[in-house]
């Protein structure tokens, strides 16, 4: 059985409507995804949502080729994104930007069917991370060193907005994949970049336990870390999955 706790908040000083990360959860189906819409592009929140919801609602078969899985996700999510925007009503300056498309990182986790419940596949593009806690061990993917999160991440592109739209095919960017096995008592954490970096930076102090210990006042706990400079002021998303 998979038990889930989800935490998210916009940047400190920002409204919930300005949150540009996205997440989607299907605990019964063993499907989870997080995405971090790039602030530099417009409608990246819609793009991030399209990616995670497409992945969770319509996951690729576990045995499908990894790159083909991402290509299918990209094609479906692009349609959802394009249909989610009222292109003709945009003011001139928004049209200028929207034609450039939207960008987002993506991390999708799928746990195999109930007949084979101990295998998982994680596909990621960019700097959202998966943490696998098993007894005293912690494995993180795709990064194990917090300094690797200092660079501009790889991003999924929606393709152009109006007027070019879906007429041009878009190839998926480079991706990284991890296959793993879970057992009772393990925890998997999906996290976007700022909280991933903080967890990697503090990995010897069990930062994941600090989050769970402060789950009831999560928002002010994270706000405190941000205001002290320990964590970057960014949208924050983390999904904790306990295996039993």
């Amino acid at each position: 059985m998979l038990s889930v706790r989800e935490f998210h908040r916009p940047k400190s000083g920002y409204r919930e409507s300005e949150y540009e990360d996205a997440f989607s959860i299907d605990a019964d189906g063993g499907k989870f995804a997080v995405a971090d819409g790039a602030t530099e592009s417009s409608f990246s929140n819609i793009w991030a949502k399209a990616l995670v919801s497409t992945f969770v609602e319509n996951p690729p078969p576990m045995d499908m080729n990894d790159r083909q899985s991402v290509k299918n996700l990209l094609d479906e999510a692009r349609k959802k994104w394009y249909e989610g925007i009222d292109w003709t009503s945009l003011p001139w300056f928004q049209k200028n930007k929207a034609v450039l498309g939207s960008y987002s990182t993506f991390l999708g986790l799928q746990v195999d069917s109930p007949e084979n419940p101990r295998r998982y596949r994680c596909i990621t593009i960019g700097d959202s991370c998966l943490f696998h806690l098993s007894g005293p061990k912690m494995e993180s993917f795709p990064f194990s060193d917090y300094r690797d999160l200092n660079y501009t991440p790889r991003l999924m592109w929606s393709g152009h907005g109006y007027p070019i739209g879906l007429s041009k095919d878009v190839e998926p960017p480079g991706l990284e994949v991890k296959y793993g096995k879970i057992k009772d008592g393990d925890t998997l954490i999906l996290a976007t970049d700022a909280i991933s970096k903080w967890m990697l930076q503090n990995k010897f102090n069990k930062p994941w336990q600090q989050i769970l210990d402060n789950a009831d006042n999560w928002d002010s706990y994270i706000g405190g870390l941000i205001s002290s400079g320990a964590m970057k002021n960014d949208d924050i998303t983390a999904i904790f999955i306990s295996v039993s």
Binding site: E18, S42, F43, I46, F93, Q94, N96
Partner: peptide, 12 residues
């Protein structure tokens, strides 16, 4: 125009 573009987000 470039500053306008950079400051343009989904909500304005």
């Amino acid at each position: 125009g470039d500053f306008v573009l950079r400051c343009t987000k989904s909500d304005g």
